[in-house]
């Protein structure tokens, strides 16, 4: 926690220089977003801490919805199909999404089937790609890259041997899986395994899982339809597994505070243990 709080102050690595350069473009907006993120992140970590270390029941990707229809799954399917169509048909996509697609090598590495934890890191090391990259996203990514520099990453979940890799070295071998999450032909009813796995990692220690998440869960927020960035994809506010961006989460906390996926109040754990502090705390913290 202290680490992340002091992160923006660090300015030794070249990454940070770049970060600063980018930050100057629209510092205000970024800072606002970053602050919100850090707050959310901190409260999330705190929340996790108070949950104890025992693993919670594995959340099902399919939320307990009422009636026959399942909005979360619908949206996930829509998002997936949207992503699948992206290559051929970009006119409908928001400009930001197009920019991402074109400028981020990690996207192409997805379609080539390379699921390396260091793909995004490499992405960050290259300076040339930053022309149209969204600024605050770049900052967030850089932050995470720094995070990796600070705490030696212990990335692998599947492989028992910890990959020693400092960020920009050899990519991990692609994980074996039947369907890639971004595969256009993947049945939308399949649960997204990579999400679950990355959840397990990131809740234990929040560094290793992040880049893996950012590579393997390209998706958009089902509430506002904006792209989920790295922080968002590692953000799992509810044990039902429903993901959304931090902005929407904050707005929901200020409204009725229920998870859109399962309609349980945020901070309520599946096994019925009493609600934790997350809700009230975030509400009080995020007054603009």
């Amino acid at each position: 926690m202290a680490n992340s709080a002091s992160l923006p102050a660090l300015s030794s690595s070249p990454n940070d220089l770049r970060k600063k350069k980018r930050a100057n473009r629209s510092a205000k907006l970024k800072q606002c977003k970053l602050d919100a993120r850090r707050d959310q992140w901190l409260s999330q970590v705190k929340n996790k801490g108070s949950n104890g270390e025992s693993s919670p029941p594995i959340p099902s990707t399919r939320p307990i919805g009422p009636r026959k229809l399942d909005p979360a799954r619908d949206n996930a399917a829509a998002a997936e199909s949207l992503l699948g169509l992206q290559d051929s048909e970009t006119e409908f996509a928001a400009g930001r999404r197009i920019a991402r697609k074109d400028d981020r090598p990690c996207s192409s590495s997805i379609s080539s089937g390379c699921f390396s934890g260091s793909a995004t890191e490499d992405d960050e090391e290259e300076d040339g790609d930053s022309t149209a990259l969204d600024d605050w996203e770049a900052v967030a990514d850089a932050l995470i890259a720094d995070h990796h520099h600070l705490e030696e990453p212990k990335p692998s979940i599947t492989a028992p041997v910890p990959t020693p890799a400092p960020p920009s070295v050899t990519p991990k071998p692609p994980e074996p899986r039947a369907w890639r999450p971004d595969d256009a032909f993947r049945p939308s009813s399949l649960p997204n395994l990579s999400k679950q796995r990355s959840f397990d990692v990131s809740r234990g220690f929040r560094n290793g899982g992040r880049t893996v998440v950012s590579v393997s869960v390209p998706s958009s927020c089902p509430i506002c339809y904006e792209d989920l960035d790295v922080t968002d994809t590692s953000f799992l506010p509810c044990s039902c597994g429903f993901r959304l961006c931090l902005f929407c989460h904050k707005r929901i906390l200020e409204a009725d505070g229920r998870c859109p996926g399962c309609r349980k109040p945020y901070g309520m754990i599946l096994d019925g243990s009493p609600p934790v502090f997350l809700l009230s705390r975030s509400c009080s913290m995020n007054i603009r």
Partner: peptide, 23 residues
């Protein structure tokens, strides 16, 4: 319809509301 009242979820869309009404 409950989803138009207390069971509403922001994850629903206008399209899914239509589907719910058909259901």
């Amino acid at each position: 319809l409950d989803i138009l009242k207390n069971a509403w979820s922001p994850a629903w869309t206008l399209q899914s509301v239509c589907r719910a009404i058909i259901a």
